Simulated scan of single mutants.
Amino acid sequence: MNHLPPAIFLMGPTASGKTALAIELAQRLPVELISVDSALIYRDMDIGTAKPTPAELAAAPHHLIDILDPTERYSAAQFRTDALRLMAEITARDKIPLLVGGTMLYFKALEEGLHDLPSADPALRAQIEADAAKLGWPGMHARLVDLDPPTAARLSPNDSQRVGRALEIVLATSKPMSAWLAEQTSEPLPYQLTKLALMPERPVLHERIAQRFDAMLNGGLIEEVAALRQRYALSLDLPAMRCVGYRQVWEYQDGLYDLDELRNRGVYATRQLAKRQVTWLRGMTDIQTVLASTSLTALAASLKQQRQH
């Protein structure tokens, strides 16, 4: 018999409906929600992150939302520490931790533990930064595609921090990050996991992404970014401003392109994010796919039964 306490992962690409499903499940199961989203951690970034509304948060409070200013940084290691603490507290209250979001790196770090990768090489990183100043980070990402295809497939071309780190590792050791990770022993999460994935069909997901980005623009995303730039000492190098939509609005505000191009770039970047998230999900094991037609009553009953066993 498995004596580990239960926990639920609810994962999926952006705009797949995770928040709505999590709130529905919270009405039917004794769960507490933990956000697994590297954008929702930031205060004052509400529209472009599709943050749950005050009404939704009142119905189903989420942990790890609005915990940092947009000028701050947050790592997978910090997330794992925070999530493990919260999961223990939730379990002690005889509730089930329900972790919901789309930051797959956080889910992986939580489930498997953190890997002991080679230490940083400041001189090599400085050279990588100099190359990036000439080629741009998409150009550096293209280099990573040649050197470490599995890692490149899950990283955004504009994710300077992670692309730079992956290049640093392969150039310093002649072994790609994906190979380092594959060789490391895991540190299993001490919970009986149920892993759910919302995976809409691609045309449906693409339509949702377009509709949601249009709603963000109509709902004040441009004004939100303007207010952030006025309130905080921000730059495009900060993780907060690498969130999909924010970089595109920033560049629009700087006159690099017009509103139509902003819309097209925002939708495209969101679709690329969703593609990377789906790639992560397809590489994970023991996942139950949840469809739009899945009965919530049946799903809740199934989860209750798993808890009893």
Results as ranks from 00 to 15, higher is better:
Gln253Trp: 12
Arg85Thr: 15
Arg231Gly: 07
Arg165Val: 02
Val204Leu: 08
Ile23Phe: 06
Leu198Val: 04
Gly266Pro: 06
Leu117Met: 09
Trp180Phe: 12
Lys195Gly: 03
Arg229Met: 12
Leu296Glu: 06
Ile287Gly: 08
Ala132Lys: 06
Ile90Phe: 03
Gly136Ala: 14
Ala22Asp: 07
Trp180Arg: 00
Ala76Gly: 06
Val249Cys: 10
Leu144Tyr: 07
Thr103His: 00
Leu217Pro: 07
His3Cys: 13
Leu221Thr: 10
Glu251Leu: 13
Pro52Leu: 06
Gln161His: 13
Ile169Asp: 06
Ala39Tyr: 00
Leu114Ile: 13
Asp148Gly: 03
Leu10Cys: 05
Pro122Asn: 00
Ser119Met: 15
Ala83Leu: 12
Trp180Leu: 11
Ser16Leu: 01
Ala22Phe: 00
Leu273Ser: 04
Gln272Met: 11
Val100Glu: 01
Thr49Glu: 00
Ile96Phe: 04
Arg212Cys: 09
Leu99Asp: 03
Leu221Lys: 01
Pro122Gln: 02
Tyr246Met: 04
Asp237Thr: 11
Ile8Met: 01
Gly136His: 13
Ser75Gln: 04
Glu201Asn: 03
Lys134Phe: 10
Ala133Asp: 13
Thr49Gln: 05
Arg80His: 09
Val204Thr: 13
Val100Gln: 07
Arg265Gly: 04
Tyr257Leu: 14
Val267Met: 11
Thr297Ala: 13
Ser35Val: 05
Leu303Gly: 05
Val100Gly: 02
Gly139Cys: 14
Ser160Phe: 01
Leu205Asn: 04
Ala172Gln: 10
Thr91Asn: 01
His63Phe: 08
Gly219His: 06
Ser119Leu: 14
Glu207Gln: 10
Met216Leu: 07
Ala109Ile: 05
Arg143His: 14
Val278Asp: 09
Ile41Phe: 03
Val249Tyr: 05
Ala22Thr: 03
Leu98Gln: 08
Pro70Cys: 05
Asn218Lys: 15
Ala197Asp: 05
Asp37Arg: 01
Glu168Met: 12
Leu217Asn: 05
Phe9Arg: 02
Gly219Phe: 10
Pro122Ile: 05
Ser302Trp: 09
Ala226Ile: 11
Lys175Phe: 11
Asp116Asn: 15
Ile96Lys: 00
Ala142Arg: 15
Gly139Trp: 13
Asp254Tyr: 10
Leu221Met: 08
Leu98Cys: 02
Arg231Asp: 09
Leu114Glu: 14
Tyr257Cys: 05
Val244Ile: 14
Leu236Ile: 12
Asp46Glu: 11
Arg85Ser: 11
Leu228Ser: 08
Pro190His: 12
Leu86Pro: 06
Gln272Ile: 00
Ile169Arg: 09
Ala142Trp: 11
Arg80Cys: 10
Glu223Met: 14
Tyr257His: 03
Tyr106Ala: 03
Leu68Thr: 12
Leu238Arg: 02
Ala153Glu: 09
Arg263Thr: 02
Asp37Asn: 09
